[in-house]
Design a protein around this nucleic acid. Sequence first.
DNA 1: GGCAAGTGTCTTGATGTCGAGATATATCTC
DNA 2: GAGATATATCTCGACATCAAGACACTTGCC
Lengths: 161, 161
Amino acid sequence: MRDEVDDLVEAWGRERGDLDLAPVEVFSRISRLARHLDLARRDAFTAHGIESWEFDVLAALRRAGSPYELSPGKLLRQTLVTSGTMTNRVDRLTARGLVERLPDPKDRRGVLVRLTIEGKAAVDGAFEALLAAEADLLADLPGKQRTQLAGLLRSLLAPFS
Amino acid sequence: MRDEVDDLVEAWGRERGDLDLAPVEVFSRISRLARHLDLARRDAFTAHGIESWEFDVLAALRRAGSPYELSPGKLLRQTLVTSGTMTNRVDRLTARGLVERLPDPKDRRGVLVRLTIEGKAAVDGAFEALLAAEADLLADLPGKQRTQLAGLLRSLLAPFS
DNA sequence: GGCAAGTGTCTTGATGTCGAGATATATCTC
DNA sequence: GAGATATATCTCGACATCAAGACACTTGCC
């Protein structure tokens, strides 16, 4: 089985045969898979009426557990966006009724963002759809290889933490 | 060795123990690695005075081989951006003297984008820096496992082509 | 040859994100 | 306890991208 990256490596090999292209074999595939994955995510979420950026925020709140509250600061660190972006996102999610802003009782500078009932329902439905779509993409890979793949990826990712 | 995704899966497991989170173990790692990779790329390129989007365009031309020419249409298909974006990018690369626009002798609607001498030098230097940075990230992974990982990723990526 | 449909590139307007700065409150140091 | 520094959030301007449409030329068909 041949993929896009085999073509890419072949082209580079023709032009720069002097270089060791082994890293491309791994990292180019990771980048491309991530891009395809984004599209698959988008499709899965569209069916549930939410967008990827909305899921990112709602999922962080959902994972926090009851009462599903986090500060904007914690949210932006989990989702890797800047503070201006998070303000904008929370504004739009509030307008849609999926989250609400409350004053933080412990810190008068602060605010808490809380999932509403509607927000919890939306993120739970979307997450199930996402898992189903992702399971499809993995369908051809035997369980053993899946575990192996997860393990290899973990050893690449761990140094970043 | 534990990574960010182990925490993520643990949190979801607490809240949604009813779901099979196996896909997250693979795809969440792929997305996160892609993000870290983007940052590493950016750093490697910054040292060579170019940006990631510039590399994407220049590299496509470089891979095409001498005389390093492609139409804007081919470029945008290879880099997965829209035509408006490619016009803007070629404009800026032209202003920097890294590419030039020529009329396509075969089709008077068309244009060819060609790498300049400076552009070729820039992309070659940047590509070597990228490979070096990526090789670092792979340093802890034995060659055998690296090949195995590339193979597993290929089987996930191949269906998209 | 001439008209219709197709192709290639560029233009324009809308939008989401970033980054820097502003404001308010908290915490630390002496 | 007062002043200085740090933290939390929001505001605002700049900018890269996208999507749709405009325009020019080419190709296919009668």
